[in-house]
Nucleic acid binder design. Structure first.
Ligand code: FES
Ligand code: FES
Lengths: 148, 148
DNA sequence: TTAATTGATATCAATATAGTATCAGTTCAA
DNA sequence: TTGAACTGATACTATATTGATATCAATTAA
């Protein structure tokens, strides 16, 4: 069971790069090369993120992409929703004979509770948080540098 | 993002039926009909569950399937693992430049923490618990009967 | 003996995921 | 003012996963 698909995975990495270099345009090529993401595939993801107002772009030479939203306001739950659709545990698992009344179905509640827990966990982790974690981890490794 | 696939969904429903009728063999046909599960597809799932020691079978006329384990000891986490594979968030999301040291990678920890939360939630819900919830729900609807 | 069953497998269809290709339009800079 | 470096838009292909079907041998109860 794969929780994050390549799309989400790549999108997160692209956003991490954009989030680390605020105020400048990064090209799809640069991100693709640096993160080992298939170029055209990445292009599609970036366009999708523009549509969702996460980033902006600038055409032409020296163009590229830049974060639009505050990284702290981009939970990976949103990226999962964009690239993998809303988290849904099951349409309606227990039909007919097994479950007489949908309205007050306890099972359904159980399942939806889990759904919410999962969502809330993914909501807690934002691009901003990941960037800070990343900086901290790299800081520990080699002083205050961030080259490698 | 679909959390439960048809396989898991069907398997849970089959187990709920088996768990509601302890001590007798239920045929694949009966389960298939009652739960609207494609017959041969279900057969495959049942065989898989035999291999995992969740149920036993009896061949021949009047044969069928019966629970082997206590329903309270069948968490749906196990069914997810059997039919959808272990929950894995991502192989290694942040490679190369972004993440210098795998060993103490904070991001990795973050991701794995979510993984554990998800798993533990699915671990809490057992077939036994679902059956009790179900009975309670049906009980509310139409007295103490359990026909419909 | 035969109908009702499971065991074991092979195959197919549908869908989702991952990745590629192409061309038009925009912008910077030589 | 031209061309290289870019994005916008979209069509296409390949691969993997999921969902479903088909077949036939072996077993068992009536
Ligand atoms: S789970 Fe669908 S009505 Fe109860
Ligand atoms: S996430 Fe892979 S090493 Fe940090």
């Amino acid at each position: 069971m794969k929780v994050l698909t390549k799309k989400t995975d790549y999108a997160i990495r692209a956003l991490l790069m954009l989030g680390s270099k605020r105020g400048v345009y990064l090209s799809a090529k640069a991100i693709s090369t640096e993160q080992d993401i298939p170029y055209q595939f990445l292009r599609g993801l970036l366009q999708e993120m523009i549509r969702h107002d996460l980033i902006i772009s600038k055409e032409g030479a020296q163009g590229g992409f830049m974060l639009k939203k505050d990284p702290d306001e981009i939970p990976i739950a949103q990226l999962i929703e964009i690239f993998q659709g809303k988290v849904q545990v099951s349409e309606c698992m227990f039909r007919k004979q097994l479950c007489a009344n949908r309205a007050r179905c306890v099972l359904r509640h159980e399942i939806m509770r889990i759904e919410q827990v999962v969502n809330s966990e993914f909501d807690k982790v934002t691009i901003g948080k990941l960037i800070r974690d990343l900086d901290a981890a790299n800081g520990m490794t080699h002083g205050s540098g961030e080259t490698a």
